[in-house]
Design a protein around this nucleic acid. Structure first.
Lengths: 248, 248
DNA sequence: CAAATAGTGTCTCTAAGACATTATTAG
DNA sequence: CTAATAATGTCTTAGAGACACTATTTG
């Protein structure tokens, strides 16, 4: 069977049952040194009362525009203020029975955001909130699988891209960047080695030429400020400490 | 708008135009030392006569099953013989105007296969064939973008996974493995260093304990035979020679 | 003052890559 | 025999990580 004949069959609405296409967003941020994910509470069946990833039906728009729109609606941000948020396609989930009502194919997106206010304040997100990723309740549909895929992607992306900078403000200290890695990888990192390594990767960060106004809360010198550099990939990469078990 | 209300709107067939979901497969193999991709020729409009990636409508099956089915139909292989072929989801392409007839969201898959016979012999693939990836005609729809994404994924995956073994037979020599890397990366690799490196990565390959029957066609000793090891990730990775331009 | 932290220095070990060398085969 | 190639050895350099140390700041 060729792609062409398949398309022709698709023109007959009875040839195949209706398929819905949705986007779901795994939006990650860091609060109080812990990695959090944005969840909404479902009001209606199925899975009424369960938490779920924000998402919805795709309209006359690109898939990425749909993801941006859903993210803006749930965070209360205006779409034009999503500029500093990193958004990338994650994977597509389409098992025939993942939604009990009908065939729903969901294109999942992954977002990295700097610390954002609680979403309850604005918009129609009646019951949305940030949850620590290691303390997430059971999710609706296969959203647990989608979240797991998003977390693995995020952990991996910090290794070879400068996307850790998407979790902090426009100007940041090396220690703040280290806290991002520590939260996403759930690993403590050696401060001195991390510092030297970040500065040695071309284009990862560039100096602002200023320091923080004050030292640390419990003492210590003022830290130099940096902004994101122009590298899109890290060479050499910042590899996470390898657990040999992960390899096999 | 919540996911729930979106779903309810989806129940009204006039609320949104119909959306078709297809799979397209970027199937790669190596023939005569060059990387090839499987293409079919379209018989009907639009893009009649153009080459395209094999693909088709998703039925009552998982997305991966749909990709396997399409791949089996076009290669002439029985689905149960697809065992040694690596198949993974690549990305989803859903721009509203990517198909002029209707909204079509396509989930692309990436396949790595050992050298296969020409597909013309069996099945209904009237005009399917393997094309060198650096000499591909203009493709239908956005299949050129999909192919580019597949090639980039393939090049990257050879670095940190043992998937190069999916391109060769069950037993292979280090030189055959090196030819895979050379074809996919389009780079000549130093034979001696490559040899030592492959053997030094735990679980990449394991010795069969035998050698080839004959030496090379133009002389040289018999080569030891290996099979794929049990590693799922390569530590350390085999990084491709970095072009600094790729980084920015 | 003590405690904490930014940033740097030093050392060891692993790995990448350039290159040489030996052994084995085809023709 | 010569040419080709599998497999190994050697050397240099880059980078990861353990650890020590200095300087600066808070309270």
């Amino acid at each position: 069977m060729t792609a062409e004949s398949d398309f022709l069959e698709a023109y007959d609405p009875r040839a195949f049952p209706a398929t819905a296409v949705t986007v779901d967003v795994v939006a990650l941020t860091i609060r109080d040194g812990r990695l959090h994910v944005l969840l909404v509470e479902r009001g209606e069946h199925p899975y009424a009362g369960r938490n779920a990833l924000p998402g919805g039906f795709v309209r006359q728009e690109t898939l990425e525009e749909a993801a941006k729109r859903e993210l803006a609606e749930e965070t209360g941000l205006r779409p034009e203020n999503l500029g500093r948020i990193h958004l990338e396609q994650l994977a597509t989930f389409g098992d025939p029975d993942r939604d009990p009502r009908m065939r729903v194919v969901s294109v999942a997106y992954l977002a990295f955001a700097p610390s954002l206010p609680d979403p309850r304040s604005g918009g129609d997100a009646s019951a949305a909130g940030w949850f620590p990723v290691d303390d997430v309740p059971e999710l609706a549909f296969d959203h647990g699988d989608i979240l797991a895929a998003g977390l693995e992607r995020a952990r991996s992306k910090l290794e070879y891209t400068p996307l850790a900078t998407a979790f902090v403000g426009a100007e940041f200290t090396i220690a703040e960047l280290r806290a991002v890695y520590a939260a996403v990888w759930d690993e403590e990192l050696h401060a001195g080695n991390f510092h030297r390594k970040v500065l040695s990767v071309p284009g990862f960060v560039e100096s602002v030429g200023a320091t923080t106004e004050r030292g640390g809360e419990r003492g210590g010198p003022r830290a130099r400020l940096y902004r994101a550099g122009d590298a899109r990939l890290l060479h050499p990469a910042l590899l996470r400490p390898t657990r040999e078990d992960d390899v096999r």
